[in-house]
Design a protein around this nucleic acid. Structure first.
Lengths: 282, 282
DNA sequence: GTCAACATGAAATATTTATTCTAAAAATAA
DNA sequence: TTATTTTTAGAATAAATATTTCATGTTGAC
């Protein structure tokens, strides 16, 4: 059971695509060119003006207007809105999606709530898929694989993700240490950090002051730093490698799906790198 | 290796992001609002007009122009172009990733691996959606809401999910206690369990013997029991409420997405029940 | 408190962009 | 071929959008 807003905009896009394909043979020469292009590169339709699209496709701007009108829109702009919505839904902004859901107010209905959280989780994972690059992962994994010990900074909110990263790194024989500030202060735990180490900070807004301090301390010591955050800001952007992830939140509860998935992927890549290095050396 | 053109436009985007994060503290109040938004939802910047963005963020359109100028652009439009390019680039590079055409060895593997894990995570969540019933959640949530304290049994593999459940219950004023077996034995920690309590066991195959013992001990004491497991069998099927979840696994690494999502949903439902009970009683 | 410097939003203006219109070019049919 | 219809491109117009300006509000230093 998906939500209405999302469904409708994405359905509109799918319906349009189908209709373009269906009407294709009945279109004039220029309109066929536009149809080809719109099916092949819909995001270009969403992101450019009629004039520049016309130039790229090789037709006049007015041809695009005629194209839109052929499919029942009032003009190019109205059709373009469908393409834009699709792009927004499929890449990042589930924010509106969640927002619209929250407004339906049926928080009481457990089944509906379940759906909302699951949809939010899926949206987070889809966003992760689009927003992280293999190069970033390689860089971060290498920092971890090369480290004497990987320390993971955990504040309350992100403690769960930190335990997961630590657990998986350990399983893969990458030395990992959780700096949880438990049974004492982070300050005390930081003495184990050396310049040969890598410190991973997982920090969600609002950041715990302790995490920020510990992160800066790690940099002072000369350790490598990796940051996973939902809002890239000083001092975290000075990290050797950083990931910005946007987790969907429902009623103030932030999903953790993207964060733990990233943690798993990083751990595995670091683990395989480490294993490769060891076999080479022996 | 991507095309040069794509690289450069994406670099421009990355550079801008970094500069926004770096200059953040020096920005005025409105400009900070815009900075937050632009970092969190860049595709919205790409796809909307200055006026509509202004409304969503809560600033005047001219503030967006000022924001752009602060970062050296001639105006909003010029900055928006960076965001648009990024969106176009990232969607095409994603396409390339799927088709795995022109990427070098390790990077291609990493991209592929990332996709597999994310798809596995989504599959797990979809499965969760179909396999759990609102009635089960209601039952389990009620057991937790009625409890004096909710104890959560954590073995190594599921420690992460247990911390997440404990954290969210606490946030919602449901008394929660993590039985982690740290700094001693589970046996010792179990003395705090009373017949008015509820014990949640999260157990993946192969179950740690300690968890099984602790679970049976909890039943002997007379506490209510809830089990989250990937393989329902004795003694867990004797629990007052149990959930069977199947997490997708890639290369032997099991996703945790369904488990933590279920944990979140249960915590929230228990939290709202608890809150309702308290307002009714007072 | 007073002043200066800066930040802000509303409205005026400029610019870009979409849309409509029309004459001419193709395509089609006789 | 010629008459008729459809398609097209470019210019004229309309609409949307960005930008500038300026009066007013805010902040911080003295």
């Amino acid at each position: 059971m998906q939500m209405k807003y999302d469904d409708s905009s994405d359905e509109a896009f799918e319906a349009l695509r189908e209709q373009i394909a269906e009407d294709y043979e009945g279109l004039s020469k220029r309109l066929k060119l536009i149809a080809d292009f719109s099916l092949q590169d819909p995001s270009a339709i969403a992101l450019n003006t009629a004039a520049s699209l016309g130039e790229e496709i090789g037709v006049a701007p007015s041809a695009l207007v005629r194209f839109a009108k052929h499919f029942g829109f009032s003009g190019f702009s109205e059709m373009q809105a469908i393409f834009r919505d699709h792009l927004q839904v499929s890449s990042t902004s589930y924010k509106e999606r969640i927002h619209a859901l929250a407004e339906s107010g049926a928080t009481r209905d457990t089944g509906e709530m379940t759906d909302r959280f699951i949809e939010a989780g899926i949206a987070s994972l889809r966003d992760l898929q689009h927003s992280i690059s293999p190069e970033h992962i390689e860089t971060a994994a290498k920092l971890m694989a090369d480290a004497r010990i990987v320390h993971i900074l955990a504040q309350k909110r992100t403690f769960t993700a930190a335990t997961y990263l630590a657990y998986n790194l350990s399983r893969l024989d990458v030395p990992a240490n959780l700096l949880d500030g438990l049974g004492g202060t982070l300050e005390q735990q930081m003495v184990t950090v050396s310049p040969e180490d890598t410190v991973v900070a997982i920090s969600f807004n609002p950041s715990a002051g302790e995490t920020v301090e510990a992160f800066e301390r790690a940099r002072d010591i000369g350790a490598r730093t990796i940051v996973i955050t939902d809002l890239a800001r000083a001092p975290f952007i000075h990290a050797d490698s950083w990931f910005q992830i946007s987790e969907a939140s429902v009623d103030g509860f932030r999903s953790l799906n993207a964060t733990i998935s990233l943690a798993l992927i990083l751990a595995i890549r670091a683990g395989t790198m480490c294993a490769e290095m060891n076999t080479e050396n022996s």
